[in-house]
């Protein structure tokens, strides 16, 4: 464990809590893409199946349960509890175009071909594009509430910090995982235009307006 991965996990946890808190407090999921949240739940479910087969540390196990529980709780709030506020018209990204290619790629490019490892690889590829429905929705509505942009900033920062963690681990342990690194770079690049808008606008108190 290193400071980059620790702060990355913290940013990830903060993002999830910001979103859950926002939906719970405002009793509304307006502006939130339920599809991205479904993809995240799928990412954690397929990645954390190893909870039953291997033990890394109490921290690792605890965080996996937290990510699983919060992602399903978020889906419950969006699709059940506050489904009247779910914005169907703007949350229209075809997620099958993200799931199927990720699965196909995981079957082709993986570290070794067995059930858990292919699912882990699938979750890595899917996570790199899971935010697209949310970014697509923000671009369709042309704006995002500031709290949603804080959520996106924290979520984007988590994988950017993981890149620093991978550099650190390669430098100190000689350990690297090319699949996670390439997907992580793609994932972070997808946030770049958002990061630019966030830093130039939201931090100056303006609303996040995306060129529609």
């Amino acid at each position: 464990m290193n400071i980059f991965r620790l702060t990355g996990d913290l940013a990830h946890l903060i993002a999830i809590i910001i979103l859950l808190h926002k939906i719970w407090k405002s009793r509304s999921c307006a502006g939130i893409s339920g599809k991205s949240q479904v993809l995240f739940a799928l990412v954690y479910t397929t990645r954390y199946l190893d909870l039953v087969t291997s033990y890394v540390s109490i921290y690792n196990t605890f965080m996996k349960f937290v990510f699983l529980a919060t992602s399903y709780a978020t889906i419950y709030l969006i699709y059940v509890k506050f489904k009247a506020t779910y914005d169907h018209n703007h949350d229209t990204f075809r997620i099958e175009f993200l799931i199927l290619p990720s699965l196909a790629l995981a079957l082709l490019i993986n570290h070794y071909f067995n059930f858990l490892e292919v699912l882990w690889t699938f979750s890595i590829y899917l996570e790199s594009v899971a935010i697209l429905p949310q970014l697509f929705m923000v671009s369709k509505t042309g704006e995002a509430e500031s709290i949603t942009s804080h959520y996106l900033f924290a979520l984007g920062s988590y994988r950017a910090l993981y890149i620093l963690n991978w550099i650190y681990r390669y430098a100190t342990e000689g350990h690297y995982d090319l699949i996670a690194i390439v997907a992580g770079v793609v994932q972070t690049v997808l946030y770049c235009d958002f990061f630019y808008l966030y830093i130039t606008k939201v931090l100056k108190g303006k609303k996040l307006q995306l060129p529609a």
Binding site: H12, N60, M63, K64
Partner: peptide
């Protein structure tokens, strides 16, 4: 990538 290497990252 050794067969037994488990993924230790979240």
């Amino acid at each position: 990538f050794s067969n037994m290497e488990l993924h230790d990252e979240l």
